[in-house]
Amino acid sequence: MSRLEVLKTYKIYIGGQFPRTESGRYYIPTNYSGQKLANVCLSSRKDFRNAVVAARAAFGGWAGRAAFNRSQILYRMAEMLEGRKGQFIEELTQQDATREEAENEVNLSVDRLIYYAGWCDKFQQLFSSVNPVASSHFNFSVPEPTGVVSVIAPQQSGLIGLVSVIAPVIAGGNTCVVLASETKPLCAVTFSEVLNTSDLPGGVVNILTGKPSELASWFVDHMDVNATIYCESNSDTQQMIREKSALNLKRVFFYDQTDWISDAGQSPYFIFDTQEIKTTWHPVENIAGAGGSY
């Protein structure tokens, strides 16, 4: 008797744990030839809210880590992804990629993580300034992470799009809740297993599977989310996101024209998007001249 294959259960990733959706719901994405991919969690609003709680709890610690340490962890993520290449290629081909496309996409994803691993402790120098104010003050501006970012990942890509939007957000010290591609969700779940074995603290990246049409409005409604990234060009959804973002003035970014496979899919300006610039002043004593100012 031939050996019976063990099928994988695809779960979501919240706060470093792999729960099923609290709703108990699932959906069955299929590929072009109609083959069922898996019973995938159909995440709910409550799952999203749990994920935001986890992301907020993780934010202080992650933002407070040494940039060098974040860099090490992103590099570790690349190592773990490299080690599980076979599984990702398998899943991508299941989701309609040719073998060659799948190999290319996985290689690019590893390289993209390494690209952002390198940026973790460099982008600050690029976007900082010491400002030559006219008064007797030392004055400098530095980027700081904006907080919790909700991300609706590119829908047409199974892995490279997901990696390309997550990496700059966390490289900059933010935490995030990500909704994976609805039709190609397998790699997202497997990628969360990579994250879980990469010393990335639980809650820094939370990955849900489900329907953007159902969840998008919650992603931008939540008052404890600081920014929203949306990667599709659906103009109704874009308008809805902008309108709802006004609730607490979320920063909104539409990456709907980016070719993630190309070099245009990576840049320190993606990191800059989810940064705030903080300017700090301190008086400089002026002993020889007039007294110090305050």
Partner: peptide
């Protein structure tokens, strides 16, 4: 969590110094 932080001073402004907020 604020865009401009004054230490041992307050309400200083300069054209070279970026100004603007976090959150709302």
């Amino acid at each position: 969590r604020a865009g401009v932080v004054w230490a041992n001073t307050f309400n200083k402004f300069d054209p070279t110094s970026p100004f603007g907020g976090y959150k709302e």
